[in-house]
Amino acid sequence: MEYSEVNVAFEILLEEVEVATNALQESGAELLRCGDFVGARDAIAEVEKLTDFRQRIKDLQVDWATLSSVKDRSKTSATRRPVDRRLSKGLRTPEDAFRMPILEALIELGGSAAIAEVLDKVEDKMKGKLNDHDLQPLASDPRSIRWRNTAQWCRNTLVKEGLMRSDSRTGVWEISDRGMRELNRR
Rank of each mutant, 00 (worst) to 15 (best):
K49W: 09
D63M: 03
R41M: 11
I44M: 13
R56G: 09
E30L: 11
V47P: 00
A45M: 10
D59F: 06
K58I: 06
T51G: 04
G39A: 02
W64Q: 09
L32T: 08
L50I: 05
V38L: 08
F53T: 10
A40S: 02
F37M: 02
I44N: 05
E30C: 05
Q55A: 07
C34F: 12
D42M: 10
D36Q: 04
I44T: 09
Q55F: 05
K49L: 10
D42H: 09
Q61C: 11
K49C: 02
L60I: 11
G39M: 05
A43L: 14
C34G: 09
A45N: 14
A45D: 14
D42S: 10
R41H: 15
A45S: 14
L60Q: 09
I44A: 07
A40M: 09
V38P: 01
G39N: 11
I44S: 07
F37T: 14
F37V: 02
K49G: 01
G39Y: 00
R54P: 01
R33S: 04
F53L: 10
D59Q: 14
K58D: 02
L60E: 07
E46D: 12
A45Q: 15
W64G: 00
D36W: 08
T51Y: 06
E30R: 12
R54Y: 11
K49N: 13
Q61Y: 12
I57E: 01
A43H: 00
Q55H: 14
L50E: 07
Q55P: 04
E48A: 13
F53Y: 12
V38I: 10
V47T: 06
C34Q: 14
K58T: 00
L60M: 09
L31E: 08
C34E: 15
T51D: 01
L50F: 15
K58G: 01
L32A: 12
E46W: 07
I57R: 04
L31P: 13
A43Q: 11
F37K: 08
G39H: 05
C34V: 06
V62K: 11
F37N: 01
D59W: 08
Q55R: 12
R56C: 03
L60W: 12
L50C: 03
R56D: 12
F37Q: 00
G35E: 08
E30Y: 11
T51K: 07
D42W: 04
D63Q: 12
E46S: 09
R54W: 10
Q61L: 11
E48M: 08
D52A: 08
D59G: 00
L60H: 04
D36E: 07
K58W: 05
R54D: 06
V47L: 12
E48G: 05
R54M: 15
R56K: 15
V47Q: 00
Q55C: 02
D36M: 04
G35D: 06
F53A: 12
D59P: 03
V47N: 01
D59L: 11
D59S: 09
G39C: 05
Q61V: 07
D36K: 03
E46H: 14
K49Y: 13
R41N: 09
D63P: 01
R54K: 05
R54L: 04
W64R: 02
D42A: 04
R41I: 03
D36P: 10
E48F: 13
R41V: 05
A40I: 06
L50T: 00
A43S: 14
E48T: 00
I44K: 06
I44G: 03
I57V: 15
G39P: 07
K58E: 02
G39Q: 04
L32R: 01
R33K: 06
